[in-house]
Design a protein around this nucleic acid. Structure first.
Length: 493
RNA sequence: CGGGGCGUAGCGCAGCUUGGUAGCGCACUUGCUUUGGGAGCAAGGGGUCGGGGGUUCGAAUCCCUCCGCCCCGACCA
């Protein structure tokens, strides 16, 4: 009888809990976009700004960006790049220099036409990207082959006037880094382009735990003004692909447009070979979609603003003792981990569990009178939900091990998800039976007309010509004729 | 740019059909009791009902108009 009663109440409590969670976060399976919006708002990462298409990145979201910056800066420096800063505004004549570039960006450029109360003689573009102004400066700085290579990066904001926006994934203004380099030879510039793509892959896979597919963009998807665009594509939880970083080989297009010339060793004036590469706060959107679940965020430990949260259970008269014990654990962890003791008296432990789970903190330590008595603590993992009791003297080593395990597990889960949703097809109509979700491998004849058909018929685009993986096996997935490339296609963000 | 939805307290909403003292839940403040998976009780604070105009004795409610936001599709880190 007593057992029955207890079971009943446990059940009821569980139902109530599910209900509460549902109230705050729409389940992924019900409405993926709504889930995404709920998570970022509940996790306190962003808020909508009072201007359409703009967002405020709040400290909890911005901290993740700072970890990404740290990881990238380290990689960039190790490969000889230096940070610099170029102007926000670009004179119209500069933006017009490279024909393809203007054509690609002009629809989304914002213009400044008035300054100091007077109409400007020449309107100024708010940078949508900085190739043009950087190019103009490089032309002034480079004279000799001895000045090369020029390897610079800038962290900045850019503005692209978008019609449909989503926090992190596509906002009118966004934060990013853009690297701009000039090289003496074509092969050196190409190598740079590939090297930077690998840096992105490392940071994205190792720090953000997001598995990517590296490839080359088809002509139709290339950066405006580039000879070649390399990309990293990631699969999101709803089966759509996200372009998460790009690296462009610009050939001599911009060098010629901006007159970036140098006198080579052989006494001949030559144009430089340039590259540019970028990654943005969009990566954070990817991180949310790849790892998040119905309880909220799951942040990989390496970029988690908080890695461990300690929740004391200050029950009854032993409250002070538990708090002392918890503070001692906090002190021990503080030097090595990002830890916080949540000693807010106004919330119950259960509330705190849910709160921190929503925010995606990888590890939670629970300590109560029982643990004080046993000289132990309870460790709960956010990724699996598993709880274990750990003796106090094994605290640090267990935390290290578990954080490492979580980082790996999140990547492994995401990779498994990617594999499960990547399929080879011989004809594009096959994607219908998969609900147009996932990544599809196939062959392509190389004609833009077939890419157009694919798009109109399925809403899918060629994400990339993968650098590694299967080779050409059959005919074009659209026309069936002789294929020249292997492609990965998907619906994309 | 098309389609849909919405605008009433910080958040979520009811009230509008049929005009008559602006409400509910959560959150917030204070106090007491609580705390091992979203605590309870009590007492409080908080609103030019998105803006403007009109009808009316009287408008959150009816009419006109403007604005904004979100979601879904066509173009893009």
């Amino acid at each position: 009888m007593r057992n029955c009663g207890r079971k009943f109440w446990t059940q009821l409590r569980r139902l109530k809990r599910v209900e509460n969670v549902l109230k705050e976060i729409t389940p992924k399976s019900v409405d993926y976009s709504q889930w995404y919006v709920d998570v970022i708002k509940k996790a306190d990462m962003v808020d909508y700004a009072p201007i359409k298409g703009f967002m405020v990145i709040k400290p909890y979201g911005y901290r993740i960006w700072e970890f990404i910056q740290d990881a990238m800066n380290a990689e960039f420096r190790a490969t000889g790049h230096e940070n610099a800063y170029f102007p926000l505004l670009i004179p119209e004549n500069l933006l017009l220099r490279e024909a393809e570039h203007v054509e690609g960006f002009s629809p989304e450029v914002a213009w400044v036409t008035v300054g100091g109360g007077e109409v400007l003689a020449e309107r100024l573009a708010v940078r949508p990207t900085s190739e043009t102004i950087v190019g103009a400066m490089y032309a002034r700085w480079i004279q000799s082959y001895r000045d090369l290579p020029v390897l610079m990066n800038q962290w900045s904001n850019v503005v692209r006037w978008e019609k449909a926006t989503r926090p992190f994934l596509r906002t009118t203004e966004f934060l990013w880094q853009e690297g701009h380099t000039v090289h003496r030879t074509e092969s050196e510039a190409e190598a740079e382009t590939r090297q930077q793509l690998e840096i992105y892959r490392r940071v994205i896979e190792q720090e953000l735990a997001i598995p990517v597919i590296a490839g080359r963009k088809s002509a139709g998807e290339r950066f405006a003004g580039a000879i070649d665009t390399y990309t990293l594509e990631a699969l999101m939880g709803d089966g759509r692909a996200l372009q998460i970083a790009t690296s462009h080989f610009l050939g001599q297009n911009f060098a010629k447009a901006f007159n970036i010339q140098f006198l080579d060793e052989d006494g001949v004036q030559k144009y430089g070979w340039t590259t540019s590469w970028g990654s943005s706060t969009r990566m954070i959107g990817g991180l949310i979609m790849v790892h998040g679940d119905d309880k909220g965020l799951r942040i990989p430990p390496r970029v988690a603003p908080l890695q461990v949260v300690i929740v004391p259970i200050t029950r009854g008269s032993e409250g002070e003792q538990v708090l002392r014990y918890a503070r001692e654990l906090e002190t021990r962890l503080k030097s090595r981990f990002r830890v916080r003791l949540d000693d807010r008296a106004e919330y119950t432990p259960g509330y705190k569990y849910n709160d921190w789970e929503m925010r995606g903190v990888p590890l939670r330590i629970e300590v109560g009178p029982r643990d004080v008595a046993n000289q132990a603590l309870v460790l709960a993992r956010r990724d699996t939900g598993a709880k274990e009791t750990v003796s106090r003297d094994r605290l640090e080593e267990t935390v290290v091990n578990q954080l490492t395990a979580i980082q790996h597990n999140l990547f492994a889960q995401a990779l498994q998800e990617q594999h499960r949703n990547r399929r080879s097809v011989t004809h594009y109509r096959e994607v219908e039976k998969y609900g147009y979700r996932g990544l599809f491998d196939g062959d392509w004849c190389g004609r833009e007309s077939c890419a157009d058909t694919l798009k109109t018929e399925t809403g899918m685009t060629i994400r990339c010509l993968p650098l590694d993986g299967p080779t050409i096996q059959t005919g074009c997935v659209v026309c069936g004729q002789l294929a020249v490339s292997h492609i990965v296609f998907a619906r994309a963000y």
